[in-house]
C-alpha cells in the first residue's frame, strides 16, 4: 500500500538500486598488499621456534583444567546445589539462593549436568589464568604511563576483534580440543579485568595515598594495604565481566572441538533439533545469570559504607 503511494509522490523509485558505477569507484586490483600471509608466517615461525613455550602453556592449562574438573566431578550433585544455594543466600537472599539452586537443578533434569560441568571447568580455568595474568598487568598499567601506553591500544584491539577470530591462531598453535578453547577464551576475556584493575587503582583518592605515604609506607605496603582494598569493588566488577565473557567464549570455542554446552548447541543447530538446542541454550543463559548475580552479590559485600 505504502510503496505505490510513495512512488506516486516521487519520494522513492524502485529503480534506485541500479546505480551507475563510475569506473574509478572500484579499487584497482593491481594495487594489492596482503597482510594475512605475514601473520601466517609469524604463527608458523612461533610454532617452530617457540614451540616449547606453547607446550608449557598447554601443559599448565591442562593441569589446572584437570584439577578443576576432578574437583567438580568429585562433588556430589546435591552438594553442588547446596553450595549454589548457600552462596546465593549469603550474597543476596534466601529466595535468590533457592531460585539459583533450582535453575541448576533444571539443567540436571535436562540431562546436561556433565556438559555443564565441562563448560564450568573451562570457564573457571580461563578465569583463573586471566586473573593471574590480568591483575598484575592492570597494576603495572596504573603505576606506569609507559606500560599504559603500550597496553591501551592492545586492549582496544582485543575488545573490538570478533571473538571467533581468536580461534584461528589458537587452533594453529594448539590444534583442536580444550586447550585452544581455553587459550582463545583467555585472550578474549582478559581485557575487562585488566582495565578495571587499572581504573580501580587510579581512582583511589589522592589524599588517601598521601596519608599512606605520610606514615612511611613502602610502595608495596601502599599497594596491599590501601590501593588494592580500595580498588577491590571495581576489580570485582572486572572479574565479573571477565567471567561473563569467558562463558560466552567457551560456548563459541566449541567450534574448535571443546566439549560442553556450546558443543550441544552446535550439534542441535546442525541437525535443526530445536528441542535439544533450546535446552542447551537456556542452560547457558541460566549459568550466565547465576554467575552474574552471585558476583554482584559478593561485590556488594566488598563495598564500604559510603
Amino acid at each position: 500500500m505504502i510503496i505505490p503511494t510513495l512512488q506516486k509522490v516521487g519520494i522513492i523509485t524502485l529503480h534506485a538500486c541500479e546505480v551507475k558505477k563510475n569506473t574509478m569507484s572500484s579499487f584497482p586490483d593491481s594495487i594489492s598488499f596482503k597482510v594475512g600471509i605475514y601473520v601466517n608466517s609469524l604463527v608458523n615461525w612461533l610454532l617452530h621456534n617457540v614451540s616449547r613455550l606453547f607446550e608449557a602453556i598447554s601443559e599448565v592449562s591442562i593441569w589446572i583444567l584437570l584439577k578443576i574438573e576432578i574437583f567438580l566431578y568429585w562433588l556430589p550433585w546435591w552438594f553442588f546445589l547446596l553450595i549454589i544455594f548457600l552462596i546465593g543466600w549469603k550474597a543476596k537472599n534466601i529466595v535468590s539462593g533457592l531460585i539459583f539452586a533450582f535453575l541448576i537443578f533444571l539443567i540436571g533434569m535436562f540431562g546436561l549436568w556433565d556438559l555443564m560441568i565441562l563448560t564450568l571447568g573451562m570457564v573457571l580455568t580461563s578465569v583463573i589464568i586471566s586473573l593471574v595474568i590480568g591483575i598484575p598487568i592492570g597494576i603495572l598499567m596504573s603505576y606506569s604511563s609507559k606500560v599504559n601506553n603500550i597496553f591501551k591500544p592492545l586492549l582496544d584491539a582485543m575488545q573490538t576483534m570478533p571473538s571467533f577470530v581468536y580461534l584461528i591462531p589458537a587452533v594453529m598453535l594448539f590444534r583442536l580440543g580444550k586447550v585452544p578453547a581455553v587459550f582463545a577464551t583467555i585472550i578474549y576475556a582478559l581485557p575487562p579485568v585488566i582495565r578495571l584493575t587499572d581504573l580501580g587503582i587510579r581512582q583511589v583518592h589522592r589524599e588517601m595515598l598521601e596519608a599512606a605515604h605520610s606514615f612511611g609506607s613502602s610502595s608495596w605496603q601502599t599497594l596491599l594495604k590501601v590501593q588494592m582494598p580500595q580498588a577491590l569493588p571495581t576489580i570485582m566488577t572486572g572479574i565479573n565481566q571477565t567471567t561473563m565473557m569467558a562463558l560466552a567464549m567457551v560456548v563459541i570455542a566449541s567450534m574448535v572441538g571443546a566439549p560442553g554446552l556450546g558443543m550441544e548447541v552446535m550439534i542441535a543447530v546442525s541437525q535443526l533439533d530445536i528441542a535439544r538446542g533450546f535446552e542447551a541454550g537456556i542452560s547457558i543463559v541460566f549459568l550466565a545469570v547465576i554467575i552474574d548475580r552471585l558476583f554482584q552479590g559478593v561485590a556488594e559485600r566488598f563495598k564500604y559504607p559510603e
Partner: peptide, 12 residues
C-alpha cells in the same frame, strides 16, 4: 605525622 583537609581516612 600529618592531618589532612579532607581527612584522608582509609574508607576500607
Amino acid at each position: 605525622a600529618m592531618v589532612f583537609q579532607h581527612f584522608g581516612l582509609f574508607t576500607h
